[in-house]
């Protein structure tokens, strides 16, 4: 499973990274972000590409688990 570490980056960079990673056509990805806008935007992007998103938060860091 591919992990995309987009911590420390602001929009639209995390979406760009996720979009590139999704080209590998896997069924599961993990995306790490550290701000609300990136969390929301990556969630929206993943959902628009047919993924379900499971969110866990730990001290201001967000782990998004994408699965089909």
């Amino acid at each position: 499973m591919t992990t995309i570490d987009a911590r420390g980056l602001s929009c639209p960079e995390p979406v760009i990274m996720t979009r590139k990673a999704l080209k590998s056509k896997e069924n599961r990805y993990t995306v790490l972000v550290d701000n609300v806008a990136s969390r929301e935007n990556v969630t929206r992007f993943a959902e628009s590409q047919g993924f379900r998103v499971k969110l866990t938060e730990e001290s201001g860091q967000y782990r998004l688990e994408l699965s089909k």
């Binding site: 929009c11 609300v36 806008a37 935007n41």
Partner: peptide
């Protein structure tokens, strides 16, 4: 584009 999460942080 909004549906795809291309939303500026300012919107949030």
């Amino acid at each position: 584009l909004a549906r795809m999460g291309l939303i500026p942080a300012g919107a949030y």
